[in-house]
Amino acid sequence: MSIQHFRVALIPFFAAFCLPVFAHPETLVKVKDAEDQLGARVGYIELDLNSGKILESFRPEERFPMMSTFKVLLCGAVLSRVDAGQEQLGRRIHYSQNDLVEYSPVTEKHLTDGMTVRELCSAAITMSDNTAANLLLTTIGGPKELTAFLHNMGDHVTRLDRWEPELNEAIPNDERDTTMPAAMATTLRKLLTGELLTLASRQQLIDWMEADKVAGPLLRSALPAGWFIADKSGAGERGSRGIIAALGPDGKPSRIVVIYTTGSQATMDERNRQIAEIGASLIKHW
């Protein structure tokens, strides 16, 4: 067993022997301040990774656009098919120029040779490549099948209805392509620590998230040296922004954090800054 596999296998073990965790309302004060600064709703939840206990939450059962955070769930569904012998990570998928959609920095470079399922998941999570996500959605049967996968996990809230990039439209009061912070946090925890996926697939999923290259201005910008984070960000229309993450000190994750916002007129930089400040408060009061 590799060191990384050992780390993920012992996530519940280490967490069980940690000192009790206590909620700190100071972080919620910052979440509410972010709402004021952005002029928009902000949803927040913080779960203990081992027990699933909610440590703090704000608007945990209000719907927010998922945006690209759905790509972690998508690759979880792909990995479940791999575990069941219905898919192979090494299978190569070929596609054409007509398949390319807006923001496809990886797939646009491989029109000639195609990409493997493993490479597509890596591109979808680490670079948020939209064509990679659409190609992977095709392998599982489309958005409705991802929703069905989530329902089978016990998540009857999260739903995907459309493809990239239309799913980022974020129309107010439109339930399409949305989740709730509580539902997303619980589902992410199941994917990373539950028995739904094999140990190898859980490790692969967290490795992809740990290698995320496009979430630097968010929670990662607030992390002290030595902290662990595996995350996936999302951005959408109407001032929408979000991030889902597993993080913790001492090089291992111990909490799940989900943050979503929508309806702001603020710039992307300002949305990023507010999420980073929430992260800084979380870490300060850990």
Rank of each mutant, 00 (worst) to 15 (best):
T262E: 10
G39I: 09
T198I: 06
R271T: 11
S68W: 00
G263F: 04
M67N: 13
H110W: 08
T131D: 01
Y260L: 11
S254H: 14
F17D: 03
A148L: 14
G43V: 00
E270K: 13
R63C: 07
P12D: 07
Q97A: 13
V214Y: 05
A246W: 06
F22V: 06
E46R: 04
T107D: 01
E61S: 12
L247S: 02
D212I: 02
L10T: 14
Q203R: 14
D83A: 05
P165V: 09
T262I: 09
N50H: 12
W286C: 01
I278S: 00
A23C: 06
G114I: 02
A182L: 15
Q204H: 11
P25A: 06
A280F: 10
I275E: 01
F22I: 07
T112M: 10
Q37H: 13
I256G: 02
A246E: 06
A40T: 08
E87C: 07
P143F: 03
E46L: 09
W208P: 00
L10H: 06
T147Y: 04
W227I: 02
L10C: 10
Y260W: 02
D231C: 04
L47N: 03
A182Y: 14
F17P: 05
D99E: 14
H156S: 11
Y95A: 04
S2D: 07
R118I: 10
S264G: 10
D174I: 03
P12F: 13
A132L: 00
P217N: 11
S221L: 10
Q4P: 08
L192T: 07
P105W: 04
E164V: 00
H94E: 11
A34R: 02
A215G: 09
F70C: 09
P25I: 09
T112G: 13
L10N: 06
A245G: 09
L19C: 15
V117E: 03
V72N: 01
S221G: 10
F58N: 15
H5N: 10
I45A: 12
G239F: 02
P165H: 06
F58I: 08
T261E: 06
E61V: 12
A185T: 03
I3G: 05
A15T: 15
L89K: 04
S2V: 08
S2C: 08
A245T: 05
Q37P: 04
G242R: 00
N50R: 12
E166P: 06
A148I: 13
A230M: 07
E26D: 09
V258T: 07
A15C: 15
A23P: 07
S2N: 14
I283Q: 07
K190H: 13
L205W: 03
A230I: 07
R189I: 07
D177C: 03
Y95M: 07
A15M: 15
D161L: 03
L135C: 06
E102D: 15
A211M: 10
T193M: 14
C121Y: 00
T186P: 08
T138P: 06
A211D: 15
A280N: 13
L196Y: 15
V29D: 14
G43E: 00
H151C: 10
T112H: 14
E119S: 08
A9F: 12
L73P: 09
Y44E: 01
D36V: 14
E87F: 08
R7M: 05
L150N: 05
E175M: 15
K30F: 07
L38D: 06
T179W: 00
P181W: 00
E169N: 11
M209K: 00
G226A: 09
T107I: 05
R159W: 06
L160P: 04
Q86L: 13
D161R: 03
L120E: 01
L55P: 02
N152Y: 15
G90M: 13
E102C: 07
I256R: 00
L120I: 06
Q203F: 08
V214H: 06
T261A: 09
T116W: 02
C75A: 10
G194C: 11
K144G: 14
Y95H: 05
D113F: 07
V257M: 05
T112A: 13
P172H: 10
M268I: 10
S80M: 12
S122T: 09
I206D: 04
S96Y: 11
E108L: 09
M127F: 11
T112Y: 15
E175F: 12
R238N: 15
L19D: 10
G154S: 08
C18S: 11
L100A: 04
G76T: 07
T131C: 08
S68H: 00
C18G: 10
I11N: 05
F22H: 15
L199F: 11
N168M: 06
D155T: 01
A23W: 03
K252C: 12
G76D: 01
M209E: 01
T158Q: 01
R162K: 07
T131S: 12
A246H: 04
D83Q: 09
F228Q: 06
L47F: 06
D113I: 07
D155S: 02
E195S: 12
L47T: 09
E175D: 14
G90Q: 11
N130A: 03
F13I: 11
E277Q: 10
H5T: 10
V82Q: 06
T193K: 15
G239H: 04
V29L: 12
W163L: 11
T186E: 15
R202D: 03
A132P: 00
K32Q: 15
I140F: 06
N272H: 04
G141E: 06
D48S: 08
F22E: 15
L197R: 05
F22N: 10
S122C: 08
L218W: 02
A211Q: 14
S240R: 02
W163V: 13
F58C: 08
W286E: 02
A200G: 14
I283E: 03
F70W: 08
T147Q: 09
T158P: 00
R189F: 12
R92H: 10
L150S: 06
G90N: 13
L10R: 05
E46S: 15
I229L: 07
Q86C: 10
D207N: 11
R81F: 10
R220T: 03
S233A: 08
A211E: 14
I93D: 02
R7P: 11
A276E: 09
D155H: 01
N50G: 15
G248P: 00
L89S: 06
L73C: 08
Y44D: 01
W208C: 03
I3Q: 11
T262Y: 15
G236V: 02
R220Y: 02
I93N: 03
I206V: 14
F64Q: 02
D231A: 06
T262L: 07
A266V: 12
M153P: 01
V214C: 06
Q204T: 14
T267K: 12
P249M: 08
A148E: 14
T198R: 09
H24F: 10
K32C: 09
L218I: 05
N130S: 05
S2H: 15
G39M: 10
K284I: 11
S201E: 02
L137P: 00
Y103H: 07
N98T: 15
I229M: 08
L188S: 06
A230G: 12
R238L: 10
G90W: 11
D129M: 00
V117M: 10
L137W: 04
I3W: 07
R159M: 07
S2I: 15
H156E: 12
K232Y: 00
R81T: 07
L111Y: 10
E164P: 01
R202S: 13
L55V: 11
W163C: 12
V42E: 00
A23V: 05
I244C: 09
F228N: 06
Q274A: 13
T138C: 12
P224D: 06
M209W: 03
H5S: 05
A280T: 11
P12V: 12
T178A: 05
T131Y: 05
S57H: 12
V106N: 07
I259A: 04
L188C: 09
M115V: 07
S233V: 03
L197M: 09
T112L: 15
D207A: 15
L218P: 03
M66F: 09
C121L: 05
P253W: 07
D155C: 02
P224T: 06
F64I: 02
I93M: 03
T261G: 03
N98R: 15
K284V: 10
K252N: 11
A84G: 14
G39C: 11
F6G: 06
S51I: 04
S233Y: 01
T27P: 06
S281L: 12
D231I: 04
T112I: 14
F6T: 06
I3D: 08
E237S: 15
R202F: 03
E237Y: 12
G114V: 03
A170Q: 07
L74I: 07
M1N: 01
V21K: 06
D113W: 07
